[in-house]
Amino acid sequence: MKTKELLLAEDDLMLATLLRYRLEKSGYQVVLVHDGRAMKEGLEQKMPHAIICDVMMPYFSGIELVDYLRNELSSNIPIILISSASNEENIISAFNMGANDFMAKPVSPTELLARVGKELNRYYCT
């Protein structure tokens, strides 16, 4: 079975490294970017199987990414948003834009892994 490629966009170096390590250990191929501009460039080059993205990022926020993907690139790939601002308004606007899942910080890497697996299964196996 071909390994699934994930794009992880997170500006916090330590958390990003930790999550990448955890995801890679579980068999995913992870492309790590630290800001919105790099993420946009990455998406233009190659579309991953799923995206894990922090909402608050330099240049390009997570919500803008969802909007860009769904409306401009017309892509339906699973997007999981991570944010430390877990207020109701944020979550609702993320889902309204077309995000598939939302996780509030602090994040449990194991839980994230489970959610990624569920989203990939739902999108690629159905």
Binding site: D12, M14, L15, L18, R22, S84, K105, P106, V107, S108, P109, T110, E111
Partner: peptide
């Protein structure tokens, strides 16, 4: 410092 920063962002068993 790394561990202090990290403990704010992670939860569950990892913490």
């Amino acid at each position: 410092t790394i561990l202090f920063d990290l403990q704010k962002d992670v939860a569950g068993g990892t913490k």
